[in-house]
Amino acid sequence: MNENPAITGYCLIHDRQVVLSGDLLFTSNEKQPGAFFTEVYKNYSLNYPKFYKMDNLCKLGFLASEFLLKDKEITTRYSGEDVGIILYNAASSLDTDRNHQQSIQDRLAYFPSPSVFVYTLANIVIGEISIRHKIFGEGTFFVEEHFNPALMHEYVSRLFNDEIVQCCITGWVELNENNYHGALYLIEKTSPGKEGIAIFEPQIIEDIYLQRR
């Protein structure tokens, strides 16, 4: 039977909620992204102290990947080289760039923080997820003006067609000040019609992102 790339799971972190493949996992009244992410981290006892050192963009991507990959055993089912991470957002690392800028604004008190500076690149999110899950495959972070499911579908499909990946974590990881929207999808080759599997196509990617499914 033909196997095609399909959505075998997804995790949404948005508007003080965590949703895993359609199930509401966690909800909170906390409006500040950083405090909300820490609340989620503590609630699930994730036990990864480096979490506290991450900037908010990385915390968002890290948490979404933790839920997305839980019980999926991707590291035993795939070689690390065959798993890709392709992410997108609009604000890049602007939130942390702003923090860094503030630390170097005053020439008389010029103390840039190395631990802030290392997060002034959006693709560090890919690095954090890769380190956590021992993923060594293709990693690319696109900065797009808006959520673009067509591009997401096209690029990831090409990676599968060219046999660059056997499994791919893709999605939107956006954070800027108090606004955040994480939507990660796990894409694997599988037979159509299996339970819990959604077709990997732009309309479905968008429906999931907008929680219309």
């Binding site: 103390f111 840039p112 923080s113 190395p114």
Partner: peptide
């Protein structure tokens, strides 16, 4: 190593 840099900044600042 990033923490080391941060400690060096702490001593200076």
């Amino acid at each position: 190593s990033i923490d080391a840099l941060e400690l060096i900044v702490l001593l200076e600042k």
